[in-house]
Amino acid sequence: MLSRTADHLYWMARYTERAENTVRMLDVSYRMSLLPHANGDDHGNWRAILDISELTEAYARTGRPLSARDVIEFVLLDRGNLSSVWNCLRAARENAHAVRGKLTGEMWETTNATWLKIRDLTPEGLQDMDLGGFFEWVKFRSHLLRGVTVGTMFHDDAFQFARLGTFLERADNTARLLDVKFHALMPAGEDTQGATDYYRWGSLLRSVSAFETYRQVYRDVITPYKVAELLMLNDAMPRSLHACLDEIVDILGQVANSRSCETIRTAGALHASLHYGSMDDIFAVGLHPSLEKFLACINTLGDRISNDFLMPVAHA
């Protein structure tokens, strides 16, 4: 298939997934902000949101205060913030439009309808809305697109590249969420095995739809150690790093070409580190350095995928 087609499908999926994860993250912060302030640091909570998406500087330039309303507006709707949910859904739709002929009718209609709904939404309009309901809506639009993709698209290479976009983005987003939230909820030196703030850790789990799963898997109080384990190493947990890498390695195997050996090796090595990894080893190194290393690796993988398949620059 054409590299450009693969590129558009990959980014359509990535942007949609990014929009979904962004509202998941906003959702957890929003929920936490509704809780009685344990340490009274509401600002820190919202700053963390900006940190996750590397938006702290861009936000500072807008001169807005670090208030819930301003940060939510910025992250959801700001036209100038290229990572805003509004811009992600626009980009997803633009990528879909460019390869409309390769999409099923349902896929196009889903992406297009999502965009048309959010296109005219203003900060004023947002204030009249039930925020929680809006977050749910974005999540469900993403579920819907993923669902119609799996359920209607011919499972050829085009399909594989769309899936690749989904899992690469998800791996990145889960790692960022864990990194920033862990740091915010877990002051250095505290015991990762000990029971902790049930509501805050519970919100984190809920943000990745893992609250019930946690209960089912551990039948125990929520500990930071186990939360990290669930979101990193458990391959049955669909948003975990391990589960994402399972998919990525599988897809790269299917679309392999003559120049992708090194990319497959990179993905395989990363996969092995999760498959055979243990939380004790990870905590021995430190969670933050481990996740940083993981994110750098995902980034490299993204570049390699671009060069091998999507935007080959040099010739034959």
Binding site: L2, R4, N257, S258, P312, A316
Partner: peptide
């Protein structure tokens, strides 16, 4: 057949190629 744009094509040694995920 493929629907291509200019950016999908390149010329090398007076031959025309399209960029695909499986190579030129």
């Amino acid at each position: 057949v493929e629907l291509v744009e200019g950016q999908d094509l390149f010329v090398q040694d007076e031959m025309l190629y399209m960029r695909t995920t499986q190579g030129p």
